[in-house]
């Protein structure tokens, strides 16, 4: 177990440093923020001067080493655009993203898994058809479109919910649904397949033969066995929710790190982007480790070795 943890830890560090390096190089090669910062009538000399004041005229490897040196001292640098520590900027936005991801996950799991169970156990029924339609819609409507549609219907026309921003609880409803829809479909489909798969197994027939109802078999035995693939998906979906948040946060003016990422990339605010990348890769690694641990908990046959 300790061996496993150490190995995973080393892998995680390599993965995160790799991602940081790639993003650093790609961002720097595609132009620095100086051109976006200066007023449009600035002369070439003025631009060169500001570039040198900001340190972007140094060779890229010097900037990189400087950056890594800062990281080892837990110094994430200053935002050149906002002149505030990059870490503070990201930290102030993080709670909003966590809120939204939690809301979306609630929609995804709360609707997706029951829908999957019903679709697997009531095959051929009208309910199954209705659910299938909902799942397909959730899967195929792009988030920017569903976001705008929701705002138009529930915000502008019916005036039930606020059109943008964070703050009141009601403001969370539309972005959570829009963001959670795709994951909801994924959960519903995976749950359905996993349960159908389990239902064809001998232990189910044995259980039914001993007089258990379908519901009893499903809830006592099948769900637990069907949960392994669903847990894997859940781990991946948390990452996807962070990625999907980029669009949803922009549409709903939700001040999370997705919106911040877009703004920082557009304004070439390198160090803020790096902190966000660091955070997202950390979340990815962490969720996959957590998923591994949950496997062991759910299925005692799985051992974490190597």
């Amino acid at each position: 177990m300790i061996n496993y943890a150490v190995q995973r830890f080393i892998q995680a560090i390599i993965a995160i440093v790799g991602v940081l390096t790639i993003v650093f190089v790609v961002m720097h090669l595609s132009g620095d923020p100086t051109l976006l910062l200066v007023p449009q009538d600035a002369s070439a000399e003025m631009i060169a001067e500001l570039r040198s004041q900001l340190g972007f005229d140094r060779p890229i490897y010097v900037q990189y080493l400087d950056y890594i040196y800062g990281l080892t001292h837990l110094d994430f640098g200053m935002s050149v655009v906002q002149r505030v520590p990059a870490l503070d900027i990201v930290a102030s936005r993080l709670p909003y993203t966590i809120q939204l991801a939690a809301g979306a996950l609630l929609v995804a799991i709360g609707v997706g898994i029951p829908a999957g169970i019903i679709m697997a156990t009531m095959r051929g029924s009208v309910i199954e058809r209705i659910l299938t339609a909902i799942v397909v819609t959730g899967q195929s409507v792009p988030t920017f479109l569903s976001g705008i549609l929701l705002i138009f219907v529930f915000g502008v026309t019916l005036r039930w919910l606020p059109t943008s921003g964070a703050g009141e609880l009601s403001a969370m409803i539309m972005p959570s649904i829009a963001l959670g829809a795709l994951s909801m479909s994924t959960f519903a489909r995976m749950t359905r397949i996993a349960i159908i798969d389990e239902l064809s197994k001998d232990y189910v027939r044995a259980g039914r033969a001993r007089g258990l109802s379908l519901g009893q078999v499903v809830f006592r035995h099948v769900l637990r066995n069907a949960s392994i693939p669903v847990i894997t998906i859940a781990a991946l979906e948390i990452g996807n929710l962070l990625a999907g948040a980029v669009i949803i946060e922009t549409v709903f003016a939700w001040p999370g790190i997705g919106q911040l990422a877009i703004q920082s990339i557009q304004s070439r605010d390198f160090l803020v982007v790096q902190v966000i990348v660091l955070l997202i890769s950390f979340v990815y690694v962490l969720t996959s480790v957590l998923a591994d641990l949950v496997y062991v908990f759910v299925d005692p046959r799985i051992r974490l070795v190597r």
Binding site: I148, I151, F152, G155, V156, T163, S164, G165, T250, V251, F252, A253, Q259, I262, Q263
Partner: peptide
Amino acid sequence: VPDVSTRIA
């Protein structure tokens, strides 16, 4: 509010 449709809403 980054999105223009949202600003109009």
